[in-house]
Structures are given as structure tokens and as C-alpha cells.
Computed example of a mutant assay.
Amino acid sequence: MEEPSPTPDPPTNQLGSLNDLAHELASLEDLATRGSWRSILDKVSRARSLNLLTSPHDHLIYLSYNVLAFSKLRRFSEASNEIDTLDDFNSSYYKYETYPRLYPNRSGSMIPFSLRFIHAQLPIKLGNRQEGLDRCYLLLKFIREKIKEKESHDLHDSVRIWKRRENSVLNCLIGHHLGDKEFSLSLDLIKDLINRDYLDPVLVSKLGYIQMQIGDIEGAKGSFNSVETMLNERKSDEYFLSEVQFRNLVNRNKALVYLVGKDYVSAVREYEECIERDHTDVVALNNKALCLMYLRDLSDSIKVLEKALERIPTIALNETLVINLCSMYELAYVNHSEIKRTLSNWIVHVAPDDFDASCTRVLISKDGR
């Protein structure tokens, strides 16, 4: 029931639209948006075999999408091999100013941030946790150097972009440390930002979640109250949150406090406020259903998740929600296997390529039925 960590953006560049710089970039972006990762691999392979990629930027962007597709499909060794072909990210070969005729009036690195992000994560996916953590901390250092550089030139928009990237990497690091129950390291990362007056409501909320996990309920309440104070000060634009997103964050924080106290009725009320504002708030939908399950109202809990999948399939279709729905089926129905099989068949037709269909826990017989 914890808030999800952010995921990296598709390959892009902070200098503006790149459609004029890369071969058919718009079609790659469209395929990524639809989760058609296998089609991306096919498109990259075809473009390379037909020598359609003519500029350094073409090759780099297509490689980035290839790496992203391999990663989404959990083909991490192939993603790692692809990145290794680049050798040194800081090479002059990957700088715009090296090619003034191709990229007039452009400077800086062509390496998309998402490629750096995936490069940092891959060792962990391949079983080398320490190397992955080391890369993540090096990436965090790189980002903070960029923030200082942009601040020294009063480039406020660039500072905001790099601070958002700092958030992504910090959330990733916090998630890894929490996964190994390294609570003190997670707390240190967040408190360091807070001590530097970097009051992002999502990070302060994350602090509250960690405090809850270590039993510091009063500390968590204090963190959540700080988030509500930020909302009242109307500073949502500073944190890339709309007012609806900010208000829903506050409601979800309140709901978690009720959940810890096993006051599921009050938690449901908070989640319903979120859903009334934004019917695509999947965290609220999922957690409302769990609360109803705890209240032994399996029928309504199942309806909440089924309606979410029906109304907003591209948003609601994630492994956590499907696992919860299947667990509810198992509790509610004797013939849950057939019901889950129906769900599994539906998922096959609507899910993106990277969806893990095994989360339905449907047993497939040897003859495929």
C-alpha cells in the first residue's frame, strides 16, 4: 500500500523537441507509450539493417529505446550488452559540439537521462546489488553537480528538471534500501534533502511511510502534517504536482494513518475522496478495495478493482492490482480458477508487452488449456 516509486521517462533531451534530430522518433515514442516493446526491438533492428540511421544522434536514440525495450521485457543481459557498446558516456563522441554542422547552436551531452538511469539499475537486475548501488550514488552525484551548474547560471527551468531527476534517483535508492530493511540509510537520504530545505511533498510523504515501518507513528503523523501544510501554502507547481494530485496525496497519507490504527471505515472515506477527484487514482482504488476486504466486504472490494480494470485498463492494469484481485477471487469463490482464467485471457488482449501475466496464478496444463 506504499506509494509507487517513479519510473524513468522515455529517452528524451532537455533541449527541446528532437523530432528534427532522430529518424522517426515520433513512432518510437508512440510504440513506447502503448507498451509495444517487441515492436520497438523489431523497428530498431530493421533501421540498423537497412542503414537508415545516419547521424550520431540517430544511433544513440535508437540504442536508448532498444535498451529500454530489453529492460521492460526483463531481458537485462541484452540491455547491458547494448549499453556496453557505448563505452564512456563522457566521450566527446556523444557531445553535440563535436558535430557543429549537424547540430548548430547545440551543446552538451546527447546521452538521454533515462539511459543513465537504466545503466545504474541494470547491475541490480543482474544480481550485483552493490555495483548497482554504487552506480546510483554516482548518478546522484552527477545530478547534483548539474544542479549546481544550472543554479550558477540562473537556469531555473533546467534546475527544476534536474531536481526532478534527483527525486527519481533518490526514490530508487530509498526503494533498494527499504527492500533490504536498511531503514537508517533511507531516512538519512530523505533527511539530507529536508535539511537543505528541499521540501518535496512526495519525499516528505515517503519519510512518513518509512517512519511508519519502523514504528514511529507520531513522527509519521508529523511528516504527513508537513505535507498538508505545504498544500495549504499553495506551492504545488514547485513540485510538479497539480492541485488534485497534491490533495490526493494528503488524503492517501491520512488513510495510511487510519490503516495502521485498523480504522478501515475512515480509510475508505479518504480513498473515496481521492477517487471522486480523480477516477484514475489507482493507488486509492487499490487501497480502497483492500480496506473493504479487511472489512469482510469481498463483493464490493472485487467490484472496485473490476470496475477500475474495465474503465481505465491502460492505467489500472498493473501486477499489484491484479494480484490483489486474484487473491480476492480465491477468498470469495469456489470456482476461482475459471474466473482467474477469464481475467488472464482478457489481460492477454489488452496488456502491454512487459506485463507479467503469471501474476494471475493461473495454472496452465501441458496441452495449453
Rank of each mutant, 00 (worst) to 15 (best):
G215P: 08
G179C: 03
L178A: 13
G179I: 04
V202M: 10
G208M: 08
R196T: 15
K181C: 00
Q213Y: 04
L207E: 09
L178W: 04
K181D: 00
P201E: 01
D188T: 13
E182L: 07
I174W: 01
H176R: 15
N195T: 13
K206W: 09
I194F: 10
I214V: 09
S205R: 06
S186R: 02
V169L: 02
L185Y: 04
G179D: 07
M212A: 02
D197P: 14
E182Y: 07
I190K: 04
S184P: 01
Y198T: 01
L199Q: 11
S186T: 07
G215L: 08
K181V: 02
L187D: 05
G179K: 02
I210L: 08
D180G: 14
C172D: 06
I214W: 06
I210C: 06
D197W: 03
L187M: 01
I194G: 09
V169P: 01
C172A: 12
I174K: 03
S184M: 05
Q213H: 04
Y209C: 14
R196A: 15
F183R: 09
D180K: 14
S186I: 05
G208S: 14
C172K: 12
R196F: 14
L189A: 09
L207G: 11
R196N: 15
Y209P: 13
S184V: 04
L178M: 14
D200V: 08
G175Y: 00
I210T: 04
M212F: 02
D192T: 07
Q213S: 09
K191I: 12
L207K: 08
N195G: 14
P201S: 07
D180R: 13
Q213F: 02
K206D: 11
P201V: 03
C172E: 09
K206G: 14
P201M: 03
D192H: 12
G175E: 05
V202W: 02
D188F: 13
G208R: 09
V204W: 01
L185F: 06
H177K: 12
I190A: 11
D200T: 09
I210F: 06
D192A: 07
R196Y: 15
G179W: 01
Q213C: 08
I174G: 12
R196M: 12
G215M: 10
F183C: 01
S184H: 05
Q211M: 03
H176P: 15
I210V: 13
L178R: 12
K206P: 13
L203V: 09
E182N: 07
D200I: 05
Y209N: 15
L187A: 08
L187I: 09
L170A: 05
I214G: 10
G208C: 12
Y209Q: 15
G208N: 11
P201C: 05
N171D: 07
L189W: 06
F183L: 06
D200K: 07
V204A: 06
L178I: 14
L173K: 01
F183Y: 10
K206L: 14
I190N: 09
V169G: 04
I210M: 06
V169D: 01
L193Q: 04
I194M: 03
D192P: 10
N171K: 11
E182W: 03
L199P: 13
G179A: 05
R196P: 15
G175S: 07
G175C: 03
V169Q: 00
M212G: 02
L170W: 00
K181I: 03
